[in-house]
Write a protein that binds this DNA or RNA. Sequence first.
DNA 1: CCCCGTCTTTGCGCTAGCGCAAATAAACAC
DNA 2: GTGTTTATTTGCGCTAGCGCAAAGACGGGG
Lengths: 232, 232
Amino acid sequence: MKVSPADLRKVVVFEKATDDDLQLILQNSIDRSIEEGGFFFFQGDVAEHLYVLTSGQVKLTQSNPTGQLVNLRTIYPWQMFGALGAVRAEAVYPANAEALEDSSALAIKSNFLRSMLETRPYLSFGLMNLMTSYIQEMQERYRELATERVEQRVANALIRLAGQSGVRAEKEAGIELSFSRQDVAEMTGTTLYTISRLLSEWERQGIIATGREKIRILKPHGLVRIAEGLEK
Amino acid sequence: MKVSPADLRKVVVFEKATDDDLQLILQNSIDRSIEEGGFFFFQGDVAEHLYVLTSGQVKLTQSNPTGQLVNLRTIYPWQMFGALGAVRAEAVYPANAEALEDSSALAIKSNFLRSMLETRPYLSFGLMNLMTSYIQEMQERYRELATERVEQRVANALIRLAGQSGVRAEKEAGIELSFSRQDVAEMTGTTLYTISRLLSEWERQGIIATGREKIRILKPHGLVRIAEGLEK
DNA sequence: CCCCGTCTTTGCGCTAGCGCAAATAAACAC
DNA sequence: GTGTTTATTTGCGCTAGCGCAAAGACGGGG
């Protein structure tokens, strides 16, 4: 995929960059395409690049010693990922980045970006903003996991996903999400089975419609009620 | 508490600051003392200051709508807290900051620090480093909470605490921690009762010694084994 | 030294959620 | 269209961990 400076400005962190800077970034980047199921990087790899997704979808996961996965977030085009390595030399990626579909990304050399940070405060602010929002989201999800019941966490996850990625269908009401039961389980710290049972129940209640790797939210308000723990 | 520039350099983020900068920071700060049980700030307050703890201990917590708490971390002298507000104007604190004992902190105006960031790359790097380590720790704890059993999470928490705050006693072997069962429960997303049962069991096995608001780690290796899930 | 408030322990019963297993359904390849 | 692979559903049994309640244990204040 051919990326223009104008494209690059769609990346929040680069919003305020000058044209020259964008040009420079492009010159210090290469294109990487990964097919569905492949990985841009693994947890523990040395973070030599940070990425801007140009097409496709990328799932960030973290694995524990026994190989069990948790789902940290999904990346959509023009979002940055692998950026934590940009800050420290010698850093390693704290997560795996798996392509959910054939995907392309611009791989920017970490060293190069780090040197740009030295003289471009707008870039540091952009990155710090990104990091701040990550921290806040992680803290929130951590609290949810620690204090809420499975139903509430799953409802919250669907609400969050709807905000991040939901496609509002034109004719039919509803926000459509493309995630498997397994994906949702990994996002909420529960199991495939429990998710299936919950979604079935909610479908019976008319709050959502389900399909293979599809969840369509029909009554967002119903989810909000569940998330707040008002049902029970 | 009277703070000197030399003191301030003990703060990791300010490590590489010039003397002039440290002086400037001091001039734009005020001292705040909070007695045990009081709060430096609450979640949701506008983040007008960021803090450097000069004495005492501060617990960062997050509360949900029903008031249930989770424990994010404990801050010790010369660590920074409330820094997320430094980045964006108008930001609110994402956590509560409670004094665990009578504590003092230097309150630095967020606006001022933000303006310094514009021209001091070393400061941005320092802050980004801090944020990066937070993100990594939160991701790790999130994964633990999602995939590990209570025993493992508690063992991990004790290990982490030992690293962050543990005082190695001189004569007697062991690393001493000062936390109540309730504190540990809030850190690991479990309950007071379960913690009590676990600690009793571990004391029986000679891995730790317990007391009122005290936990002394006698055999760190035993904890590591439990954390890895090798037991049971 | 005693009182009181706070922290801790432990018995007990309960249930949310796990996870196997087997059936079913949807998509895909040829 | 057929066979195969992968996702989903659901019944069933089980247990880790919750949470009440009541009884200690500790420590500080007067």
